[in-house]
Amino acid sequence: MNMQVNPQELTLDPAPLLSVAGVSRFYGERIGCADVSFDLWPGEVLGIVGESGSGKSTLLRCLAGIDRPDAGQVLFRGGAEPLDIYSVAEQERRRLMRTAWGIVHQNPRDGLRMDVSAGGNVGERLMDNGARHYRKIREAALDWLQRVEIAAGRIDDRPRQFSGGMQQRLQIARVLVSEPRLVFMDEPTGGLDVSVQARLLDLLRVLVRDLGLAAIIVTHDLAVARLLTDRLMVMKDGHVVEQGLTDQVLDDPHHAYTQLLTSAVLTV
């Protein structure tokens, strides 16, 4: 049988949302991440796994517009024109990060304003994006608090009065209220109790699916990767050593390091 098969043709949306080419960042002589390239399509969730020091957080910071890479390009196709995020002015990059992107930090304190009410934290993002109608902003904030399972009665409380799990859910509401196209998450369940993690994971899973978000999630937890991601990149010493469909990489790992990672877990 000699038929032509071309999976690329089958896709409805031929342009990736994010194209990453040759991204590298060095700390002096030391490699942060080296020569990372991939495409991410709308609705896709990519996991980056590896142990601490593997370069996954460095890579995420380069991708998310926080740290300029020493080499390589990050191209975002959110608007009419593809945007090379490190060739545009700082101001435009910041506008993009505020409107089209969202970043969920591992530590909610890095993503929240601790001295502003829960409702204010969510509403502020909308005001940043031009919303001015107070009642509508408060309604949207209330709606999002409920979606992340924070009781309406807590809307005027400050995040410092919340538990760690609630703070993390509030941060997620703050990020998602502005309807970003692309969300970056750095160990979103790190530092939480296992029972709290499960609730947060289920919430993230449902939100990502219902909103059709594209997301890049850094985690060292392979069970989190299995639950939330479609694709996986495995990093070691700053290099991507293996990538593919999440279940392929976890169930039939080819690289020695990935085999070591997956065999070190009790159950994934």
Binding site: M3, V5, P7, Q8, L10, T11, W41, E44, D230, L245
Partner: peptide
């Protein structure tokens, strides 16, 4: 491994992840 997907042949071995998911 050629799978007949939506009436068309696709090699699942070389397909990109999102095609496999589809």
């Amino acid at each position: 491994i050629v799978i007949t997907h939506a009436g068309r042949p696709v090699d699942i071995v070389s397909a990109v992840p999102r095609t496999v998911l589809d």
